[in-house]
Amino acid sequence: NKASVVANQLIPINTALTLIMMKAEVVTPMGIPAEEIPKLVGMQVNRAVPLGTTLMPDKVKNYE
């Protein structure tokens, strides 16, 4: 099972992601793969992401 990116804290809307905000966890359904964490640093979320929520591609601005 592959790990996904999960919010390590509440991430407010329009916040630029940092390493400390994210952790890798095996979750269902799968979100953004954990190996993409370095790519996500500096990207902004387009909505608030509660603690423990899986980061889905549609929650990150300009994620492809």
Rank of each mutant, 00 (worst) to 15 (best):
Asn1Arg: 11
Asn1Phe: 13
Asn1Lys: 12
Asn1Met: 15
Asn1Trp: 13
Asn1Thr: 14
Asn1Leu: 15
Lys2Phe: 12
Lys2Asp: 09
Lys2Asn: 13
Lys2Arg: 14
Lys2Pro: 13
Lys2Met: 13
Lys2Thr: 12
Lys2Trp: 13
Ala3Gly: 10
Ala3Trp: 09
Ala3Leu: 09
Ala3Cys: 12
Ala3Arg: 11
Ala3Asp: 05
Ala3Lys: 11
Ala3Tyr: 09
Ala3Phe: 09
Ala3Ser: 09
Ala3Asn: 05
Ser4Pro: 02
Ser4Lys: 01
Ser4Asn: 01
Ser4Leu: 02
Ser4Gly: 02
Ser4His: 04
Ser4Asp: 02
Val5Gly: 02
Val5Ser: 00
Val5Met: 01
Val5Tyr: 02
Val5Thr: 04
Val5Glu: 02
Val5Phe: 05
Val6Tyr: 00
Val6Glu: 01
Val6Thr: 05
Val6Asp: 03
Ala7Phe: 00
Ala7Ser: 08
Ala7Gly: 04
Asn8Pro: 01
Asn8Thr: 15
Asn8Trp: 03
Asn8Ala: 15
Asn8Gly: 10
Asn8Cys: 11
Asn8His: 06
Asn8Ile: 07
Asn8Met: 09
Gln9Cys: 15
Leu10Cys: 15
Leu10Gln: 10
Leu10His: 15
Leu10Arg: 10
Leu10Asp: 15
Leu10Asn: 15
Leu10Pro: 10
Leu10Phe: 15
Leu10Trp: 13
Ile11Arg: 01
Ile11Tyr: 03
Ile11Cys: 04
Ile11Asn: 03
Ile11Glu: 00
Ile11Trp: 02
Ile11Gln: 01
Pro12Ala: 07
Pro12Phe: 07
Pro12Leu: 09
Pro12Gly: 05
Pro12Arg: 08
Pro12Val: 07
Ile13Thr: 10
Ile13Cys: 15
Ile13Leu: 09
Ile13Asn: 10
Ile13Ser: 10
Ile13Val: 13
Ile13Gly: 07
Ile13Tyr: 08
Ile13Ala: 14
Asn14Trp: 14
Asn14Met: 08
Asn14Ala: 06
Asn14Ser: 05
Asn14Ile: 06
Asn14Cys: 14
Thr15Ile: 09
Thr15Arg: 03
Thr15Trp: 06
Thr15Leu: 06
Thr15Val: 10
Thr15Pro: 05
Thr15Cys: 09
Ala16Gly: 08
Ala16Met: 12
Ala16Gln: 12
Ala16Leu: 13
Ala16Asn: 11
Ala16Val: 14
Leu17His: 00
Leu17Ala: 00
Leu17Tyr: 00
Leu17Thr: 00
Leu17Ile: 12
Leu17Gln: 00
Leu17Met: 11
Leu17Arg: 00
Leu17Ser: 00
Thr18Gly: 07
Thr18Ser: 10
Thr18Asp: 08
Thr18Met: 08
Leu19Val: 10
Leu19Lys: 10
Leu19His: 08
Leu19Asp: 08
Leu19Asn: 08
Leu19Arg: 11
Ile20Thr: 12
Ile20Cys: 13
Ile20Asp: 14
Ile20Pro: 14
Ile20Ala: 13
Met21Ser: 07
Met21Tyr: 05
Met21Leu: 03
Met21Ile: 06
Met21Asn: 10
Met21Asp: 08
Met22Asn: 01
Met22Cys: 07
Met22Thr: 03
Met22Glu: 06
Met22Trp: 02
Met22Ala: 05
Met22Val: 05
Met22Arg: 00
Lys23Pro: 07
Lys23His: 07
Lys23Val: 10
Lys23Tyr: 09
Lys23Cys: 10
Ala24Gly: 10
Ala24Phe: 07
Ala24Thr: 07
Ala24Asp: 07
Ala24Leu: 06
Ala24Tyr: 05
Ala24Met: 06
Ala24Ile: 08
Ala24Glu: 08
Glu25Ala: 14
Glu25Val: 12
Glu25Met: 14
Glu25Phe: 09
Val26Asp: 07
Val26Pro: 05
Val26Asn: 10
Val26Phe: 12
Val26Ile: 13
Val26Met: 12
Val27Ser: 05
Val27Thr: 08
Val27His: 03
Val27Asn: 01
Val27Cys: 08
Val27Gln: 02
Val27Met: 06
Val27Pro: 02
Thr28Ala: 12
Thr28Val: 12
Thr28Leu: 12
Thr28Pro: 03
Thr28Asp: 14
Thr28Ser: 14
Pro29Thr: 04
Pro29His: 05
Pro29Trp: 07
Pro29Val: 08
Pro29Arg: 04
Met30Tyr: 12
Met30Gln: 12
Met30Ile: 12
Met30Leu: 12
Met30Glu: 12
Gly31Ile: 03
Gly31Met: 01
Gly31Trp: 05
Gly31Glu: 03
Gly31Thr: 00
Ile32Lys: 02
Ile32Gly: 01
Ile32His: 04
Ile32Glu: 02
Ile32Asn: 01
Ile32Leu: 02
Pro33Ala: 10
Pro33Arg: 08
Pro33Tyr: 08
Pro33Gln: 05
Pro33Glu: 05
Ala34Cys: 09
Ala34Glu: 05
Ala34His: 04
Ala34Pro: 02
Ala34Tyr: 04
Ala34Val: 06
Ala34Asn: 05
Ala34Gln: 03
Ala34Phe: 07
Ala34Gly: 06
Glu35Phe: 12
Glu35Gln: 11
Glu35His: 13
Glu35Lys: 11
Glu35Val: 13
Glu35Thr: 13
Glu35Ile: 13
Glu36Phe: 12
Glu36Lys: 12
Glu36Arg: 09
Glu36Thr: 05
Glu36Gly: 03
Glu36Gln: 11
Glu36Leu: 11
Glu36Pro: 01
Ile37Asp: 01
Ile37Cys: 08
Ile37Gln: 05
Ile37Leu: 08
Ile37Lys: 01
Ile37Pro: 01
Ile37Val: 03
Ile37His: 00
Pro38Val: 08
Pro38Ala: 09
Pro38Thr: 10
Pro38Cys: 13
Pro38Glu: 10
Lys39Ile: 13
Lys39Tyr: 14
Lys39Ser: 12
Lys39Gln: 12
Lys39Asn: 13
Lys39Ala: 11
Lys39Phe: 13
Lys39Met: 12
Lys39Cys: 15
Lys39Trp: 13
Leu40Ile: 07
Leu40Ala: 01
Leu40Val: 02
Leu40Cys: 03
Leu40Gln: 00
Leu40Trp: 01
Leu40Lys: 02
Leu40Asn: 03
Leu40Glu: 02
Leu40Pro: 03
Val41Asp: 02
Val41Pro: 01
Val41Thr: 04
Val41Arg: 02
Val41Cys: 08
Val41Tyr: 00
Gly42Ala: 02
Gly42Leu: 03
Gly42Ile: 07
Gly42Arg: 00
Gly42Val: 06
Met43Ala: 06
Met43Cys: 11
Met43Ser: 05
Met43Gly: 03
Met43Asn: 03
Met43Val: 05
Met43Lys: 11
Gln44Asp: 04
Gln44Arg: 13
Gln44Ile: 13
Gln44Met: 12
Gln44His: 11
Gln44Pro: 03
Val45Leu: 08
Val45Gln: 01
Val45Arg: 00
Val45Ser: 04
Val45Gly: 02
Val45Thr: 08
Val45Phe: 00
Val45His: 01
Val45Asn: 02
Asn46His: 08
Asn46Met: 11
Asn46Ser: 12
Asn46Asp: 07
Asn46Thr: 14
Asn46Arg: 10
Arg47Trp: 10
Arg47Ile: 15
Arg47Thr: 15
Arg47Cys: 15
Arg47Ala: 15
Arg47Phe: 11
Arg47Glu: 15
Ala48Ser: 12
Ala48His: 11
Ala48Met: 13
Ala48Tyr: 09
Ala48Arg: 11
Ala48Pro: 13
Ala48Ile: 11
Val49Gln: 05
Val49Met: 09
Pro50His: 09
Pro50Val: 05
Pro50Arg: 07
Pro50Lys: 08
Pro50Tyr: 07
Pro50Met: 09
Pro50Thr: 08
Pro50Phe: 07
Leu51Gly: 09
Leu51Asp: 11
Leu51Gln: 15
Leu51Tyr: 14
Leu51Pro: 14
Leu51Arg: 15
Leu51Cys: 15
Gly52Trp: 02
Gly52Gln: 02
Gly52Arg: 00
Gly52Asp: 06
Gly52Glu: 04
Gly52Asn: 09
Thr53Ile: 07
Thr53Cys: 15
Thr53Leu: 01
Thr54Tyr: 00
Thr54Ser: 03
Thr54Glu: 04
Thr54Asn: 04
Thr54Arg: 00
Thr54Met: 05
Thr54Ile: 07
Leu55Val: 06
Leu55Phe: 06
Leu55Ser: 03
Leu55Ala: 01
Leu55Met: 06
Met56Cys: 11
Met56Gln: 09
Met56Thr: 15
Pro57Val: 01
Pro57Ile: 00
Pro57Asp: 03
Pro57Ala: 10
Pro57Met: 00
Asp58Glu: 10
Asp58Gly: 09
Asp58Tyr: 12
Asp58Thr: 05
Lys59Pro: 02
Lys59Cys: 15
Lys59Gln: 15
Lys59Leu: 15
Lys59Phe: 15
Val60Asp: 02
Val60Trp: 00
Val60Gln: 03
Val60Ala: 01
Val60Arg: 00
Val60Pro: 04
Val60Tyr: 00
Lys61Met: 12
Lys61Ile: 15
Lys61Cys: 11
Lys61Asn: 10
Lys61Ala: 10
Lys61Gln: 10
Asn62Pro: 02
Asn62Ser: 08
Asn62Ala: 08
Asn62Gly: 15
Tyr63Glu: 03
Tyr63Gly: 02
Tyr63Ala: 03
Tyr63Gln: 02
Tyr63Leu: 06
Glu64Pro: 12
Glu64Ser: 14
Glu64Phe: 12
Glu64Cys: 15
Glu64Ala: 12
Glu64Arg: 12
Glu64His: 14
